[in-house]
Simulated scan of single mutants.
Amino acid sequence: IDLETYIYWSGDIGRQFAEALAERARAAVKVHVLIDWIGSRKVDSRDLAMMREAGVEVEKYNPLVWFNLARLNHRDHRKLLIVDGEIGFIGGAGLADIWQGNADAPNHWRDTQFRLEGPAVGQMQAAFMDNWTKTTGRVLDNEDYFPELRPAGDHYAQVFFSSPRDGTETVRLMYLLAIAAAQKNIRLSASYFVPGALTTEELVDASKRGVNVEIIVPGAKTDVPIARYASRSKWGPLLKAGIKIYEYEPTMYHCKVMIVDDVWVTVGSANFDNRSFRLNDEANLNVYSAEFAAEQARAFEEDKTSAKLISYKEWKNRGLCTKLLERILAPFRSQL
């Protein structure tokens, strides 16, 4: 069992996972857990001790060291779980009680997570091995981790990962290429939507050539209010170009999904912001399938029923204090 996650917090979910992983380790299953040093700051040390005592290998990614403070800004934002090298789980959900429900209460976030089987699980395993090797210096490379995988369905799928350590902006390029290729529609669910100049230009160009662009973002119920202000400050050109932006109202909207032309979907840990594009380690699942895209489009349309459409007039007439706060936050957009 290989688990890599940004958030691992104390609570019912954290304890249940610790108990389940410890039980498997005691049954002689090799269990590797990689959690982000900052994202796991709320984890119960007793849960970690329980796992380690049972034989689980638990490592923290990029802990604080005095000789390299800059690496604190480079976090492991991936959310991966791989079992026997054959079954994988990927999406936006971490390990905390806020993911117990499905937007059925204000303290239960709305999110999207998928179970994956087939050859693409090998790519997911490679994503886990990337940071496991960087953190521990150990390579896990036998058939227990990379068994022969046969197709398990009809959908074309791939898992890819990015890291600033490798000098790549894979996530950003993936979004830009998908937007540039769109011919009919783009549906974007974005928990943290802070577009830069180039991504804004691409979205505006898509709308101008007749692509119907719709975006759902968190509303007032957000865990990072400053990200919401930074996001809203960038909406002018998008709304003016006819792009529809909705704010989800029931609870925190943590989905990270884009559907293009009802045939291609990307989902995973990557947000639509500079932090995911250039600072954090991310992993996404891409699926090329009209059937799968239709399922995600239905979920998107259902989310719209619980979201408020923001007009250009409403955005332009936002309060003076809001505009002032947006200006104050402008220098920090690259970190959001």
Score class of each variant (00 low, 15 high):
3 L>H: 01
40 S>H: 12
321 C>N: 08
157 A>E: 05
49 A>Y: 02
280 N>E: 13
193 F>Q: 02
241 A>M: 04
312 Y>K: 00
33 V>Y: 07
321 C>H: 15
118 G>W: 01
54 A>K: 00
334 S>P: 05
103 A>C: 15
226 I>C: 12
170 T>I: 09
129 M>N: 13
48 L>Q: 13
220 A>C: 14
12 D>T: 15
52 R>W: 09
262 D>H: 05
36 D>I: 11
249 E>P: 06
55 G>F: 00
230 A>I: 09
269 S>L: 01
23 E>A: 12
163 S>H: 03
303 D>N: 15
318 R>E: 12
284 N>V: 12
314 E>A: 08
223 D>Q: 14
297 A>K: 09
74 H>C: 15
316 K>Q: 11
60 K>Q: 11
94 G>K: 06
189 S>V: 00
246 Y>P: 08
216 I>V: 01
23 E>P: 07
25 A>F: 01
283 A>I: 05
147 P>F: 06
4 E>D: 13
95 L>N: 00
86 E>G: 07
292 F>K: 00
226 I>W: 05
57 E>V: 10
172 R>H: 15
332 F>Q: 00
172 R>D: 07
326 E>R: 02
161 F>E: 12
214 E>N: 04
51 M>S: 07
9 W>G: 15
282 E>R: 04
183 Q>P: 10
64 L>H: 03
137 G>R: 03
313 K>C: 06
5 T>Q: 10
213 V>W: 10
202 E>Y: 07
150 R>P: 11
122 G>Y: 06
15 R>M: 06
164 P>G: 04
263 V>K: 13
109 W>Y: 13
157 A>F: 06
161 F>W: 13
298 R>P: 10
135 T>W: 09
109 W>C: 10
215 I>T: 00
263 V>S: 13
299 A>L: 13
19 E>W: 00
80 L>Y: 04
326 E>W: 03
125 Q>F: 06
256 K>Y: 05
308 K>E: 07
71 R>M: 11
150 R>V: 15
9 W>C: 15
115 R>D: 01
78 R>C: 09
47 D>M: 09
25 A>L: 05
101 G>C: 09
193 F>P: 03
10 S>C: 12
202 E>F: 06
56 V>T: 04
275 R>I: 06
148 E>D: 09
173 L>N: 14
324 L>A: 12
290 A>F: 07
279 L>I: 00
89 F>R: 02
57 E>Q: 08
83 V>R: 10
254 H>D: 11
166 D>Y: 07
229 Y>N: 09
296 Q>N: 05
140 L>D: 06
267 V>Q: 08
119 P>T: 11
240 K>W: 03
299 A>D: 03
234 K>I: 14
107 N>Y: 06
309 L>T: 14
243 I>M: 04
61 Y>S: 15
252 M>F: 12
264 W>F: 10
180 A>P: 03
57 E>I: 09
226 I>Y: 04
289 S>A: 08
39 G>Q: 09
181 A>T: 02
273 D>K: 10
152 A>M: 02
37 W>S: 14
142 N>Q: 11
299 A>H: 05
63 P>F: 07
73 N>Q: 14
82 I>P: 05
94 G>C: 15
196 G>L: 01
152 A>V: 01
203 L>Y: 04
26 R>N: 07
52 R>H: 10
162 S>K: 05
